[in-house]
Amino acid sequence: SEEELEEFAKEVLRRGITIIVNGIRITEVEIFVKVLREILEKR
């Protein structure tokens, strides 16, 4: 749901943790923004 997305976004921003994806360091915020864009483009 959109509320869950908002909560996830807030949690990500609070933690600001960097994770490893395919050997490249990407912040969770960047991943969230990318996923959010993909979701919005599909609408």
Rank of each mutant, 00 (worst) to 15 (best):
A9D: 01
R43T: 12
K10L: 13
E2S: 13
F8W: 15
V21S: 02
V33Q: 00
E28Q: 11
E4P: 05
T27F: 07
I17V: 15
K42N: 13
G23F: 13
I19V: 13
E38V: 08
E4W: 15
T27H: 07
G16F: 15
E2L: 15
I24E: 08
I19P: 02
E28N: 12
R15G: 10
E3D: 11
V29A: 07
K34Q: 12
R25W: 08
V12N: 01
E7A: 15
V33E: 01
A9V: 09
F32E: 00
V35L: 14
I17F: 14
E11L: 06
G23K: 01
I24P: 05
I24Q: 10
I39P: 00
T27E: 07
R43P: 08
V21P: 00
I17E: 13
L40Q: 03
E41T: 08
F32L: 15
I19K: 00
V33M: 11
V29Y: 09
L5A: 01
L36F: 05
R43A: 12
K10Q: 09
R37T: 07
R15F: 08
E41I: 08
L36K: 00
F32T: 00
T18H: 14
K34H: 05
G16V: 13
E30M: 11
F32D: 00
G16K: 02
T18V: 15
V12Y: 08
L5E: 01
L13E: 01
R25D: 06
E4M: 13
R37G: 01
E30A: 15
A9S: 05
G23T: 05
F32W: 03
E4H: 08
R14C: 03
R43M: 15
E6H: 14
L40E: 03
L5F: 06
V35Q: 02
E2I: 15
A9Y: 05
I24N: 04
E30N: 09
V29P: 06
E7R: 13
E6P: 03
E38N: 06
E41W: 06
I31G: 06
L5I: 05
R37S: 04
L5M: 07
I17P: 04
V33R: 06
E38P: 01
V35F: 14
G23C: 07
R15T: 11
V33H: 00
I19N: 00
R37M: 10
L40F: 12
E41L: 11
I39G: 05
K10D: 03
T18Y: 12
E4Y: 13
E28D: 14
R25V: 14
V21H: 09
V33C: 06
I39E: 04
V35E: 01
F8I: 03
E30I: 10
F8G: 02
L36N: 00
E4A: 13
E7Y: 11
I20V: 09
R14A: 11
V12F: 10
T27N: 10
G16W: 15
V33N: 01
V29M: 05
I17L: 13
K10M: 09
E41R: 05
S1R: 10
I17G: 12
E7T: 09
T27V: 12
